[in-house]
Structures are given as structure tokens and as C-alpha cells.
Design a protein around this nucleic acid. Structure first.
Lengths: 113, 113
DNA sequence: GTGTTGGTTCGATGTGTGTCAACATAAATG
DNA sequence: CATTTATGTTGACACACATCGAACCAACAC
């Protein structure tokens, strides 16, 4: 199981040149992780949570069963977008810091302020 | 056929709050359009082309059959990421201007320089 | 008109994926 | 130990999707 193999320092901005097949493969994997409505809601719930992290119990109200939530969180983790840590009873997820900036740079070709 | 219905002024940054179901649906559709390696190569080919546009004949060398290229370009168009125009013999695709900035803002929460 | 080149649409097919119910694991609590 | 609560995993199923060849349309040349 290959998890969170550095997805950030991956590829040039989309406006720079045509991506190679390998670059496209890696970049597509990140977009694919965010291409499902449920995953997107889960991700934004974590990303917007105070402290940058949230326990599953706080974000699992997205209209699907709990196993499905777990499945989607796993996918986000495999894509390198989220990291998880168990603290006692609950499991907390947080956003991998550099990921958002990296994907933003991919689209805009510039670092945000 | 609903094409390019304003996708840009759609949704708040992912870090702001948990997206609503409707917001997640719309945002996921844009990410999904970029979640395929072939589409990503086609999109970057158009986005990086001089003048911001390219004819199909210039970008269709991505390792799949030409009908498949056409299929993917159609999807990108339906997602509001590309626009097409026929000029004589050839069909030209160009990037919808505000889309990249809009998606970048979605991820970083800030406008690029 | 016929022919040729560029592009899209149409079926068909195989693979991928989102979903849930059922089961399994992990930690706290009694 | 048994029980309860919180997550994760497995297996199965239905639907979506990427791909192709073949048929089709659009513009140009003859």
C-alpha cells in the first residue's frame, strides 16, 4: 500500500507547457481525489476546522453511511491530501500543509500572497 | 445541452467552511474534468499554447485515438473549462479565462499576484 | 458532382468506483 | 472478563467512464 508519496513538488503549472504522460498521471491523481462531492465536503470540513484538524465524528454528517465516509477519508489520505492520527478514542484528520498551495500554483502559475 | 454555465463564481475556498452539498457537486464536477491524465494533457496543451488557443490537430498526439481525444475535449467543454470555435477547416479550443484563477482561489483562498 | 482531410457522434465493451450491509478492530468503561 | 462506542475493512453490486472502431458531418479541392 503506497500512501502519501510526495505529491506536491510534482509538476509545472498547467499553463507552462504540455504535461508529460507521467506528470499528467500524478496530477490527475490529486484532482481525482477531489472529484467526488462527498470527498470534497469531507476535505473542506477538515481544512476549515479550527486548528486545521477534525475528528471523524465531527465531519461524518455528509449524507452517506459511516463506512462510506471511512472509505473516502482513506482515499484522500492515499492521495496525500490528508493525514490521520489516532488520539485515544477518536481519529483526527488534518490537511497536509503544502498541498493546497501546491495545487493552487499548478493552476495559477504563481504563489498566493 | 448545457454548456459553460458559469462555473467560476461558484464556491468559497475549501478552507473557509464545509461546502454545502450543492457547492460540492459543482466544485467536484470541475475537479473531475481534470481528473483524467489524457484530459489534463489536452488542457495543459491548450492552456500553454501561444495565443491561449490550439487547434485539435496540434494537440491530438496524446496516445489515444482521435475519437477519444474528441470525447475528452467535449467533457472539458461541458465542464466549462474550454471553449471551442470552428474556423474554416479546423476547430480551435481555448481556455475559459477566469477558470484557472477561480479554481486557484478555491484552493488557496487568495487571488494570485 | 467525387474525393480527401479534419472532427464529432454512435454503439459496444471492459474497467473503475461509489455505496452499503456485515464483519472486524481499537480503546474506554464497567 | 464483557459491553459499548468509534473507525476501519471486506465483499458485493450497480452505475459511471475511458477506450475503440465504424459511421457520420463539415469544409475544402478538384
Amino acid at each position: 500500500m503506497l500512501e502519501s508519496e510526495a505529491v506536491v513538488p510534482c509538476c509545472p503549472p498547467l499553463t507552462e507547457r504540455t504535461l508529460t504522460a507521467a506528470e499528467a498521471e500524478r496530477t490527475a491523481a490529486m484532482f481525482k481525489a477531489l472529484s467526488d462531492p462527498v470527498r470534497l465536503r469531507l476535505f473542506s470540513a477538515v481544512a476549515s476546522a479550527p486548528g486545521g484538524e477534525a475528528c471523524v465524528c465531527d465531519i461524518s454528517d455528509v449524507g452517506v453511511s459511516q463506512p462510506t465516509v471511512s472509505h473516502h477519508l482513506k482515499k484522500l489520505k492515499e492521495a496525500g491530501l490528508l493525514a490521520s492520527e489516532r488520539r485515544g478514542t477518536w481519529v483526527y484528520y488534518r490537511v497536509e500543509p503544502s498541498v493546497l498551495a501546491g495545487m493552487g500554483r499548478l493552476l495559477t502559475g504563481a504563489a498566493p500572497a
